[in-house]
């Protein structure tokens, strides 16, 4: 029994790690309707920025997070400027409705992600960076038969704050209203006088702040910070987003938790090399039986 409880606890913490990444990813997708392939690199940038700050000044975790979030916002705005804005320079109706124009950003964001990853590799090398061991978020905490670590608590709190805060901003503020408007109909939003450019930049800033925060937290949680660290969480976040109905943030979070649980529970029954297959199996099942995602029924986006 203890064994199963422990596996469930591990599944929950895995799921929260994926959820942390999926929130920002889904927000950006919800507004632009295209995948931002560079989100994984924003996550990596967040982790490296945090590591540089920690080795240089050793401030408390909260200050590290604030700096990382600021770096993330800058990275997001920069990414939008380089990879997304150039494809919005034509404002005639045909271009705005053109899928090709939008989907070209798939390629441009992928290009940016490759350039950033290689640049980090040239600067820092491709190996695991040495993280000061006392800064790792892995102090064991015993809860009866189950052991969790300090990072689980921190990640849970941050993920809950992100989700709650984001729902508040989206539902109760003007910025949130315009984000939702652009998300459901960009052309219509433009016609009613919403500054869509600014709204998109805001979305990138907010989404990337979350991506960068996720990067440093997960980096310290596992003690594994390296240039290609964003790739696998990016894939998992993508799967969670698709399962959750593409643009539902709570849906993505719930599906991220399902992914985490299914991976750790799968390990009980099959060798761990097959655990990923179980997660992707879920994706296929979802796509066959719920083509709009498990939580994608409602019209309201984001």
């Amino acid at each position: 029994m203890d064994y199963y409880l422990q596996q469930l606890a591990i599944g929950l913490s895995l799921g929260m790690v994926y959820a942390l990444m999926a929130i920002g990813f889904t927000l950006i997708f919800g507004v632009l309707n295209v995948v931002n392939f560079a989100h994984g690199e924003v996550y990596t940038i967040g982790a490296f920025a945090g590591l540089v700050v920690i080795t240089a000044f050793a401030p408390p975790l909260f200050v590290v997070l604030l700096i990382v979030v600021a770096v993330g916002a800058l990275a997001g705005v920069g990414l939008e400027r380089i990879a997304f804005k150039p494809f919005r320079r034509f404002s005639d109706e045909a271009s705005l409705k053109s899928r090709a124009m939008r989907e070209a950003t798939l390629m441009s964001s992928l290009a940016v992600s490759i350039i950033v990853r290689e640049a980090i590799e040239i600067g820092f090398g491709s190996q695991f960076q040495t993280v000061p061991l006392d800064r790792l978020l892995n102090k064991p905490i015993s809860l009866g038969p189950v052991t969790i670590v300090s990072g689980d608590v921190i990640i849970f709190v941050v993920a809950a704050l992100m989700l709650g805060g984001l729902q508040y901003v989206l539902k109760r503020t003007n910025v949130g209203l315009s984000i939702r408007a652009v998300s459901s109909n960009p052309l219509g939003a433009k016609y009613v006088g919403i500054n869509t450019d600014r709204t998109i930049i805001w979305t990138f800033a907010v989404g990337s702040m979350m991506g960068a925060a996720a990067g440093i937290l997960v980096g310290l949680y596992y003690g594994a910070i390296f240039p290609s660290m964003g790739f696998i969480p990016g894939i998992k976040a993508f799967v969670a987003m698709v399962m959750g109905g593409l643009s539902s943030i709570p849906g993505a979070v719930i599906c991220a938790l399902i992914l985490g649980f299914s991976e750790s529970i799968a390990t009980i029954f099959v060798p761990s090399v097959w655990a990923d297959m179980v997660a992707y199996g879920f994706l296929i099942v979802t796509l066959i039986f719920f083509p709009r995602g498990i939580f994608g029924g409602a019209r309201d986006r984001v």
């Binding site: 064994y3 599944g11 895995l14 594994a224 696998i232 390990t267 655990a275």
Partner: peptide, 20 residues
């Protein structure tokens, strides 16, 4: 006896299984 994918981030499910 089990294999894992190189670069696996989280070994805890396997470790728990070994401990059992």
């Amino acid at each position: 006896s089990e294999f894992f994918n190189r670069g696996l981030a989280d070994f805890r499910p396997i470790i728990t299984k070994i401990a059992r």
